[in-house]
Computed example of a mutant assay.
Amino acid sequence: MGELLAVGSLLMEGTTVRLAGQDSRRGTFGQRHAVLIDRHTGEDYTPLLYLSEDQARFNVYDSLLSEYAAMGFEYGYSLARPDSLVMWEAQFGDFVNGASTVVDEFISSAEQKWGQTSGVTLLLPHGYEGQGPDHSSARIERFLQLCAQNNMTVAAPTLPSNYFHLLRWQVHNPHHKPLVVFTPKSMLRLKAAASKAEEFTTGGFRPLIGDATVDPDQVRKVVFCSGKVYYDLEAERAKRGVTDTAIIRLERLYPLPTDEIRTEIARYRNAATYVWAQEEPANQGAWPFIALNLVDHLQLIIGSDSVAGADRLRRVSRPASSSPAVGSAKRHQVEQQTLLNEVFEL
């Protein structure tokens, strides 16, 4: 709903919106319903085409099963129509690897190589829910490895309102950059992942969401995370009745929101333990990027007189693996609980 509200508001402002991908008209997870089909006549009906008389055009397509061709076309379209919101969606984020040439040669580097700017947006469903190695990871680590010189924005919103503001920001941002969004799967139906109406009508995109549920003076442990694992951590904290642990969400991974991180950490004067928690294996996900970048900021913020920042920031994740995920749902649940236990037993 947050996504459709963003699209609808942009259309009514006069911004053309284009979305293409595998099963994008209804959404792979049955969540979008951008196009309705009469089961008796086969007629299509697209509600977002009928918002106002002077609205912009909304184009949504189910593309062929070729990530390379489809993403390449949308990238080219974004160059020809820089005033539009142009989105390409993977059926599962994992499938973006079929278009890695487009990402490497154009999306991440075209501005530096040729001064060619694009606002193309990639929607990549991501999250570990026990669906196997080919339906879990959008390979966050690969995108973050390509990030430098403010070449693109990489985000993993956990609230519909934040996703809403992110898409609108992508259109209104004067700096034309590609946007990579790690979009939710199980969060689409998670009651905790909801926003109030006023969160859409006020404010803007929040690159970091702090923890308003704890007393800062009582916090002894600060946990950083990104994406769907936040809700797993929050549920486990509530189940255990833990009150001395703050959970901070990084909604934007690049550029890293360093000012917001410093402001949030400054609230926890008595914290002694800092953790990066992720669902992905240690050699994947955001950790390789976080280990290189967040550690330096921790040293500046909390000091390095007795213990180095690198030692203060501890990683909790699945062990390093050549596969993005296991193939057994039961094994996945065991790993997930082990991960949660480690976060709260440190």
Rank of each mutant, 00 (worst) to 15 (best):
L11E: 04
G327L: 06
S78L: 04
A272V: 13
G72S: 09
H165T: 07
A271W: 00
A193V: 08
A272S: 15
V103C: 01
S9Y: 01
N59D: 14
V307E: 15
V334I: 10
A110V: 05
A70C: 11
V60K: 04
T201S: 13
S78F: 09
T117F: 11
S136L: 08
M12P: 03
G8L: 02
G115F: 13
V219H: 06
E129H: 10
S100L: 12
G21H: 01
I265H: 00
Q116S: 13
L11Q: 07
G21D: 00
R262Q: 13
D311S: 12
N341T: 12
M87N: 03
G130L: 06
W114D: 06
G30M: 12
C147Y: 09
L313Q: 06
E89G: 01
V103Y: 03
T338G: 11
W169K: 13
T201A: 10
R269E: 15
R18Y: 10
P157S: 11
L233S: 06
D62S: 11
F95A: 00
Q31R: 06
E264Q: 01
G27V: 03
P288K: 05
M87I: 12
F224R: 01
Y163I: 07
Y254E: 00
E251Y: 05
E251K: 05
M71T: 08
I301R: 09
L292D: 14
S322E: 15
D83Q: 10
A80Y: 13
P125H: 08
V229T: 05
A325E: 10
E345K: 14
E199M: 13
D38I: 10
S136I: 02
S136H: 04
T16F: 04
V316E: 00
N173D: 14
L179S: 00
V120T: 07
L166K: 02
L10Q: 08
L208Q: 01
T28N: 09
A282M: 12
V326W: 04
L313S: 03
F29E: 06
P178K: 01
V154P: 00
T338F: 05
V181H: 05
P255D: 07
L250M: 09
S304E: 13
P133N: 08
L146K: 02
L4A: 10
F344N: 09
T243N: 09
D311E: 15
A156T: 09
E335R: 03
I248N: 01
R220P: 04
R262T: 14
Q149V: 12
L65F: 14
T15R: 09
R240I: 09
E129G: 10
P319I: 03
E129W: 07
I107M: 12
R269M: 13
T183I: 10
Y128G: 03
I37Y: 08
L253S: 00
L294A: 11
V214Q: 05
E43D: 15
N283R: 02
P125M: 03
T263Q: 15
P178W: 04
E335P: 06
V7P: 00
M12F: 07
Y77V: 11
R269F: 12
S66I: 06
Y45I: 08
M1I: 13
D38R: 06
M87D: 01
T121E: 00
I248K: 03
G115L: 09
F205V: 01
F58M: 05
